[in-house]
Simulated assay, not measured.
Amino acid sequence: MSGPGSLGEATVFVLFGLVFGSLATALSHRLPLGLPIGNDRSRCPKCAVSLGVADLVPLLSWGAARGRCRHCGQPISWRYPVIELLVALLFLAAWRHCVGDLPGAVILALTAFGLTVITVADLEAGIIPDAMLLFLAPLAVIWRWWDGGGWWDGLAGAVAGVVVTYGLRWGFKRWRGRDGLGLGDVKFLGVAGYYLGLQDLGAYLLLSGLTGLLLGVVWRLSGRGPVFPFGPALCVSLLVGLFHPAVLAVLAPG
């Protein structure tokens, strides 16, 4: 697909991706801490001054201020522009993946946004926010309907995802005396199971395990300790499964 119309759509997706990326920076920080979302203005994390419109333009404000607060001069974390750019690229990828299917691209883009929030929150705070699971759950239902998947297969995938991971959590605790998976991971598997359905759940779990091993090695080599969050592996693997279903087909047993 090419031409002015497609270029315009791509531009809109990137711009909305930057906006949602800015929202992702706020949600991933505030939700794990239980901070208010809609009734409190954004503030500088160093001097706590309320930020105005000029301070909140995604990417541009950070770049114009050279990565520092305009009020106190203290450096602002790279997390903000990185997350904003990442979500913008994921929105663009969703548009490219569903080219000619605008509703599907919107659903996939919003899913990528929710998974980014969960990934960052789990990396930084070790928490998968329930609010984001509630955000993704109806999107999973809409995605299966729009993508032509059976609702029964999605429901079976959701139930199986919860049962299997809760069983793994219970078994690990009996074996090692501590939790190997959080309840957030268990609930996430319910949502992921509905997105993918029962047929692809086994391949998804295998991909998540392999991704988790890789991320765990990186986590330990970076000196962050032996316990690492599993949510990012679940999120990355779900994105791979949605953007590239052929990967799950290769990993499927039989």
Rank of each mutant, 00 (worst) to 15 (best):
G223V: 08
Y204V: 12
L242T: 03
P232T: 05
S222H: 12
S237Q: 14
F243G: 06
L238F: 07
R224Q: 04
G212T: 01
L213C: 04
R224E: 01
F230Q: 09
P229K: 03
A203K: 05
L215G: 09
D200M: 11
F230K: 08
G202F: 12
P232I: 05
L239W: 15
G241R: 13
L238N: 04
G212Y: 00
P232Y: 05
G223Y: 07
V236F: 15
L234R: 03
L215K: 11
L239K: 13
L196D: 01
L201M: 01
V250G: 13
F243E: 11
Q199M: 10
P226R: 01
G223E: 09
V227M: 13
L248I: 08
V240T: 12
F228L: 01
T211D: 07
F228Y: 10
V247Y: 03
P229W: 01
A203N: 04
A249N: 14
G209E: 00
L207Y: 08
L238D: 03
V217I: 13
A246Q: 14
R220G: 03
L198S: 05
P232N: 09
V218T: 00
G241K: 05
S237K: 14
A246K: 15
L198N: 03
L248G: 08
Q199H: 14
V227Q: 13
L207E: 09
D200E: 13
H244D: 14
L205S: 02
L201I: 00
V236S: 14
G223N: 07
L215D: 09
Q199N: 06
L248Q: 06
S237V: 12
W219V: 02
Y195V: 11
L239P: 15
G231K: 01
A233N: 03
L206G: 04
L213F: 03
V218H: 01
V247H: 04
Y204A: 10
A249R: 14
L201R: 04
L221Q: 10
P245M: 11
L248Y: 05
L214Y: 07
A203Y: 08
W219R: 01
G209R: 00
L214D: 06
F230R: 08
L238I: 06
A249C: 12
P245D: 08
G241S: 09
G202T: 14
A246G: 13
G223Q: 08
V240H: 11
A246R: 15
P229Q: 04
C235D: 07
T211I: 09
G197E: 10
L215Q: 12
L242G: 02
A249D: 15
T211N: 02
L201H: 06
G223K: 09
G197N: 10
P245I: 08
V236N: 11
W219L: 00
L196V: 00
V217M: 13
A249S: 15
V240G: 12
Y195I: 05
W219I: 00
T211G: 09
G231E: 03
V227T: 15
S222Y: 08
L196M: 04
P232L: 09
V217K: 06
L221P: 06
L221A: 11
L234N: 06
L239V: 14
R224A: 00
G223C: 10
S222Q: 14
G216I: 09
L221G: 05
Q199L: 11
F243Q: 06
V218I: 07
A249P: 13
L234Q: 05
H244C: 11
L196Q: 02
L205W: 02
L207H: 06
V250F: 15
V217C: 11
G231L: 02
Y204K: 14
L239T: 13
V250C: 13
G225S: 00
L234T: 00
V218F: 01
V227P: 09
V236P: 12
